[in-house]
Design a protein around this nucleic acid. Sequence first.
RNA 1: GGCUCCAUCGUCUAACGGCUAGGACGCUGCCCUUUCAAGGCGGAAAUAGGGGUUCGAUUCCCCUUGGAGCUACCA
Length: 449
Amino acid sequence: MPGSEKQVRVRIAPSPTGNLHVGTVRAALFNELFARHHGGSFIIRIEDTDKARSRPEFERNILEGLAWLGIEWQEGPDKDGSFGPYRQSERIEHYRAALQALLDQDKAYYDETANNVIRLRVAPQEVRFTDLIRGEIITHTDSWGGDFVIARDLKDPVFHLAVVVDDAAQQISHVIRGEDHISNTARHLLLQQALNLPTPHYAHLPLLLDEHRRKLSKRAGEVSVLTYQQHGYLPDALLNYLALLGWNPKNDQEYFTHEELIRNFNLPGIQKGGAVFSLVKLQGFNKYYLRQLSPPALLAAAEPYLRQAGIAVDNTAYWQSALQTEQERVSTLQELGQAVAFFAPDWQGDFPGTLLIWKKSDRQQTRQILEKLAQFLETLPEPTFTVQSLHDEIMNWLETEQLGRGDTLWPLRVALTGREHSPGPFEVAAVLGKQATLQRIAQALEKLL
RNA sequence: GGCUCCAUCGUCUAACGGCUAGGACGCUGCCCUUUCAAGGCGGAAAUAGGGGUUCGAUUCCCCUUGGAGCUACCA
């Protein structure tokens, strides 16, 4: 078309028949990135024409999940624009009018042989359109049998009719949706022709696949965003990972902020083949984003998970330091909450005494060393309880006492943490402070009697 | 079955028709080291097969094979 470029308006049209799905998130993300890259609008339209399965709590879950991820929309059921309403259940009049027009012009008819549903008349023909990602796609109407159902009755339209009417009414310029809709597109084109409506551009995204390379579905497991939220994945990590599933910037960059994604996003960077959703790789991203958090941000993010692990955060500085010792060692906030449990002031070291004994040592020797170490630590002033000073002091002491590192540091670490694997003893002791450190060593000694 | 889409390491992917096919995650060897991580330095790992076109195909065309999606009065 000559003249000014049409305003970019895109949408996602989730049906509120389940909690927010990662596939929906990725479609939402790609639409949002496309809109913002082109200075356009991103719209959320709730497709609740399936009255039996649609539920308001699912709509809420979808909207809250997208907001949690930092995906922004300009118009939606909770954000009025000039193209509302944004729930199909509230747009029945539009569909009724369209259906009536089709019936009046004899472009559609009541099918008396099948429950009196309304069908669109379709002359046998080839339907073609240009997909922005795949190029020209040609379908013959014979392949699905021609006339197709567009409504159960005047007030009960089927998805095909509703999308076409709404996309036109809301001036959608680009329909960016899952590959599973490719075969529906021909029907939508036919409907647009019958209703004299414009045809938007279409771009069909590759599917998200499970480990068996089948379409990611609820049955396949962890597809609900809520689950990832509960497990302690960071929104930025999920967003970054999802953006790279089926799209890439044509270079080696892996980590993107939301703004960088907006700047770099384009349709040619979208892949044609389906992409397997890998929890392992998502964990890698989450680990990376976890490491980027400042101590206050880390505490803020981790607090719900600490509470979940039975930890009351009464001392901000203490818990910030405690979290830092595990920050690089875990991949989710949930793991983090469990990992720092031993820092609780009222921790009762519930571990077997044998765990205190280093592989080349024995019970008696371990006891003697811990006793001596406690006496030595007793002489250190409180300000010495920093990672660096403790390291220097204890290492020096080991040398003068002619003691082995493993023989000493392993039991110390276990005495303080009760764990086979944990942060180093200096890090932990520095957080605990002198008093708690000595107390835990004393507690451990009792296990060696 | 019919229709449609797709095809580079295990996975996500890069490579104007032109270097030893690059990166990331994972796996793995060594170093570091009190454990586990982290970190440093290495390694294994891919163009599905067959025909063309071309001086030259990962790249373009065809066939085969394989996979997926759709095939609802669900969206």
